[in-house]
Amino acid sequence: MQISMLSFSIAALFYIAFFILAYGLVAKILQYKNTPAPLKIPTMPAPTTQAGVVFRMSKEVVFFESLFKSSKITWLFGWLFHFGLFLDMLRHLRYFIDPVWFWVVIIQPFGKYGSILMLVGLVGLLARRIVVDRVRYISAPSDHLILVLLLCITTTGMAMSFYLGADVISVKSFFVGLLTFNIQNIPADLVLISHLVMVAFLMIIFPYSKLLHAPGLFFSPSRNQVDNAREKRHLAKWAQELEKTN
């Protein structure tokens, strides 16, 4: 079988994008992990046990608890977008796994609804960024463009899923091929190719943009520390060095 230039290019793009995403994220996570938190600064009231911290963090990750406290409308759009994205990413597992796991089959239709949630969330977030004077003031061009990029990815995906269709058999064999280093042809479908190129671009900018909020949350001392400062002495290495000098 003749492999098209297009397929080679897309394959190369995804290898590069994956490498940058993985390398960038691992480097950032290691940086966060290796930077000491010299003082106990949980936002109080805070859990007094490690199990309590896991519970607090779970509420932040799953329900965006703090955002819910601060702005219901931002919470609504933000949560709809992220939950939709979560469903959609699960739905896309079918392009990488063969045979497709049972539960991935079950959630296929929910993934479709997920894209609607994403669309509503993204439009809401973008509208808020433009309409609310305070949020407009703090927005840089990149803040708008990341939303636009996500909107384009969502709408190209929805166009294929709801109207145009795509040659999903070939798409799957292309991605399964990528995983096994056996490059296959990808259909020369303009909507599909734009969708994929934008996803690769999102992967590339992920570790070099505010998308770092995803790993950042888990390393946030105000959320992940146990309130036990009086019971247990907390001392960073560089602070220990100070004790030797005076």
Binding site: Y32, T35, P38, G216, F219
Partner: peptide
């Protein structure tokens, strides 16, 4: 940035959602 994880993480993580703007 090398001494305070809080500083490093907080500088990277803000998404400009605006939740804090009126607080």
């Amino acid at each position: 940035q090398g001494k305070y994880r809080s500083l490093q993480v907080y500088l990277d993580s803000c998404v400009k959602c605006g939740a804090c703007t009126d607080k």
